[in-house]
Design a protein around this nucleic acid. Structure first.
Length: 216
DNA sequence: TTCCAGGCAATAC
DNA sequence: GTATTGCATGGA
């Protein structure tokens, strides 16, 4: 493939992605991610890009939602809120069995309780925002969870490649579907301006769009 | 009843 | 590097 053709490919992708983003934004509106707990209920905050005062709440949600519907996670988050456990210090202090019991609705509760404690220790050791590599070194934090944290807790422009993103990009014929995580991420990140707000909305919009498509 | 949901680590090849 | 498996609840 010649250099010119490669340039054309990237240009084409850039146009298609931005168009898809604008269409989703028009269709669904700003999504107000990351959802967090306020006054005992999980809320969204469209257009404010306001994230929890406690960034660790994003760690908690991102871990609990691994291969699990967000609705099941919300119950766990509210349980933790009611026990005043939505922060790293308290997660560490809580006995494993109590933690497991509170997050039971999110599934895999034994593994996830351990993951929360690992993440809490990591979080408290931070003196600056973590790198992607540092996050990935934590037991229980994989690529998608790391990118969710970087994007929604630290406002870094990372594209989250989840099952919805794969299906969405496949439906646009931009990927085949089974490409490695980082290849897809690099492809999108090379084609969008480095504005965290776009990545914030895009990921949330893709989730919303694909959830609705499934229901039909 | 089966199938899936905002994955990850361990293991085997 | 890719393929498979255990982890577990709640809703459709």
């Amino acid at each position: 493939m010649s250099f010119l053709n490669l340039e054309e490919k990237v240009g084409e992708l850039r146009g298609k992605l931005k168009k898809a983003y604008n269409e989703l934004l028009f269709k669904h509106g700003p999504q107000g991610w990351w959802p967090f707990v306020e006054d005992g209920e999980v809320i969204y905050h469209p257009n404010s890009y306001h994230f929890p005062k406690e960034k660790f709440e994003v760690f908690i949600g991102a871990i609990l939602t691994q291969n699990t519907s967000w609705k099941n996670v919300e119950k766990a988050l509210i349980n933790l809120y009611e026990e005043n456990l939505l922060n790293a210090e308290e997660i560490i202090k809580t006995p494993p069995q109590k933690l497991e019991d509170l997050i039971k609705s999110s599934g895999y509760y034994r593994v996830k309780a351990k993951k929360l404690k690992e993440a809490a220790n990591f979080y408290l050791s931070l003196k600056a925002p973590p790198s992607r590599q540092a996050l990935l070194s934590v037991w229980g934090i994989g690529k998608e969870t790391a990118d969710s944290i970087l994007l929604y807790a630290y406002n870094k422009p990372f594209f989250i490649v989840d099952t919805y993103a794969r299906r969405f990009l496949s439906s646009l014929n931009l990927i085949e579907g089974k490409e490695p995580y980082d290849r897809i991420r690099a492809l999108v990140e090379a084609s969008l301006e480095k504005d965290f707000r776009i990545y914030n909305e895009f990921h949330a919009l893709i989730v919303e769009e694909m959830k609705r498509r499934v229901k039909k």
